[in-house]
Design a protein around this nucleic acid. Structure first.
Lengths: 208, 208
DNA sequence: CCGCAAGGTGAATGACCGTTCACAAATATG
DNA sequence: CATATTTGTGAACGGTCATTCACCTTGCGG
């Protein structure tokens, strides 16, 4: 009967054609953009004929949506794990910044695709992704509001500040390169400091 | 003889086929992305046949490069005009932020194209644009260094901070919409405040 | 009024696109 | 071992792409 039902999602799975299609599509789209990548390009990288892809994904559009939705699900789950839920606002904000920057440094391809290719999604998929993105943003927004309530910091408008901070931290993927002379951890802590300062939470004492 | 030689650059020029091609290409590429826009699309919007475009631009690639280079030249010139050269670092930083956010709100299409389509340029054009982008970034970096020297503020690493701030401010184009309930000037001043705070220059007193 | 250049046209070129389909190999299931 | 399902193949489909080219139109300098 029909009993496969393997999830095989996650950037780690290596065996099997389906994950290899995902990996090839991810890196090609990150490099060139969705519209500039053809199914033939993806198939060539996997070592398979273009028609074989259609055994695993309904269409090019469905493949993109699969990548983006899976990435956002993983991101939201990882954020949930990374946030200490009973800590003070300042520590929670630091944890958010540490997570966001670190995650974006670890998964640059997925992040880039999710960031750049919203407009290549059809209306239905774009709506789904938009909702997930809002959920992510709202987590930060709530931390800022808690911080205001607790007098820990004072951003003027939490929603604007949340968007500004996310844009700032996401931008790290544009210029950071592993082999550079700057250490990864150093970069992360740097962004954490900028974030804390920008909301008026000064730098004293411990963090996390 | 050959005596046309009109520059006709700038987002304002409306008459003539060449500027209308530029305008059509700009808005279509901003909306859909370079690879997703065809010469036929552009020609249709201008009200002309595709082959006519080649009387004005050598290729699709050259058209994109024209748009991006012209935009960056205008941007650099406008920045130069907007920066008070003999002011204190704090006022200069505020002016930079005010300029960057304001300019990005005023020219969202050009900004979006310049930001997203670097990868659609061929190697030579990408190098040209990269240099112009570096020039822009270096202006901010120098302001930060001057501020450090004058003890006006204390970003840890000026280069990282400059990139972070530019990414943050550029992100305003992603979410801001004119008809929204938030005032344009309000948004600008908000970003200025975040920028000043993030470098450790507190909020007291006057700003330029 | 002639000639010529600049700008626009329509058709054609070869290449590539996403996708389909009939079929073959492989793999698991009874 | 037989059979059904999954997975991959090769060839084709209609369509679109950027670009070229011979030609027509227009308006201006002489």
């Amino acid at each position: 009967m029909f009993m496969t039902m393997i999830a095989d999602t996650g950037a780690g799975a290596e065996t099997g054609t389906r994950p290899r299609i995902r990996a090839a599509a991810r890196s090609l789209i990150a490099e060139r953009g969705f519209e500039a990548v053809s199914m033939r390009d993806i198939a060539r990288r996997v070592g398979v004929r273009p028609s074989a892809i259609y055994n695993h994904f309904e269409s090019k559009q469905a493949l993109l949506a699969d990548l983006m939705v899976a990435h956002m699900e993983r991101t939201l789950a990882a954020l949930d794990r990374a946030l200490p839920c009973d800590a003070a606002p300042r520590a929670r904000l630091a944890a958010f910044a540490r997570f966001h920057v670190g995650y974006h440094l670890d998964e640059p391809e997925d992040v880039f695709v999710a960031y750049m290719e919203l407009r290549s999604l059809d209306a239905a998929n774009r709506a789904v992704l938009g909702r997930m993105r809002d959920r992510y943003e709202r987590v930060l927004c709530r931390i800022l509001q808690e911080g205001i309530a607790a007098d820990a910091f004072a951003p003027a408008d939490p929603r604007i500040e949340a968007r500004a901070l996310i844009a700032m931290m996401t931008g790290v993927t544009v210029w950071f390169q592993e082999d550079g002379r700057i250490d990864r951890a150093e970069v992360v802590e740097h962004y954490v400091k900028i974030v804390l300062r920008s909301v008026g939470a000064a730098a004293p004492g411990e963090e996390t």
